[in-house]
């Protein structure tokens, strides 16, 4: 197969950039533990309210620097829908759905995850500033999808 000399340079440069790019993403992910949202725990979608931590949803202090926030998503809202967390502390969000697939997205943060029934989505986030943040659902879930929202207050 004949490659034009310029094409060899072009593809060489392209492949080199690609390798470099993937290495940066990979090192950031596996070296610095910077993964996209996940969560491998499962749950019975019909028994959400009987299963910890969703039997007592809301903010729970785990230790001095870590808090857990358990949230149930259902059409068309979140419970609880008004929460307060401290700034500068690690917040572990655990979210699941009682019905269809939703999302849990805190605007102006990197918290943006799918909430799939049967699965528990998990994301750890540390708020850098105080204020009121809007939480909304960005996965279509039915007629009232665009009304599905909640608020999180970040305080000192």
């Amino acid at each position: 197969m004949h490659f034009h000399r310029y094409e060899k340079i072009w593809l060489g440069f392209g492949i080199f950039s690609l390798v470099l790019f993937l290495s940066i993403v990979g090192v950031s992910a596996f070296g610095f533990n910077h993964h996209p949202t996940g969560g491998l725990d499962t749950i019975d979608p019909e028994k959400v309210e009987e299963t910890p931590p969703f039997d007592q949803p809301g903010v729970k202090r785990l230790d001095e620097n870590t808090y857990e926030v358990a949230i149930i998503a259902e059409a068309f809202g979140y419970s609880p829908n008004n929460i307060e967390v401290p700034v500068g502390k690690e917040i572990i969000f655990r979210v699941t759905s009682k019905d269809v697939t939703h999302s849990f997205s805190i605007i102006n943060t990197n918290v943006n995850m799918m909430v799939v029934p049967g699965q528990i989505s998990e994301k750890s986030y540390t708020f850098k500033k105080t204020g009121d943040f809007l939480i909304l659902c960005n996965e279509y879930c039915g007629t009232g999808h665009h009304y599905m929202q909640a608020e999180i207050k970040v305080v000192e």
Binding site: L18, F21, L22, V25, G26, A29, F30, H35, P36, T37, G38, G39, L40, T42, N112, M113, M114, V115, V116, Q119, I120, S121, E122
Partner: peptide, 21 residues
């Protein structure tokens, strides 16, 4: 397309990301 989905481990997401590119 499922990078922010639960239920799939980060390793497989990353492997498919690499193949994507």
């Amino acid at each position: 397309h499922q990078l922010v989905d639960p239920g799939i481990s980060s390793f497989w997401k990353f492997l498919q990301t690499s193949l994507t590119f």
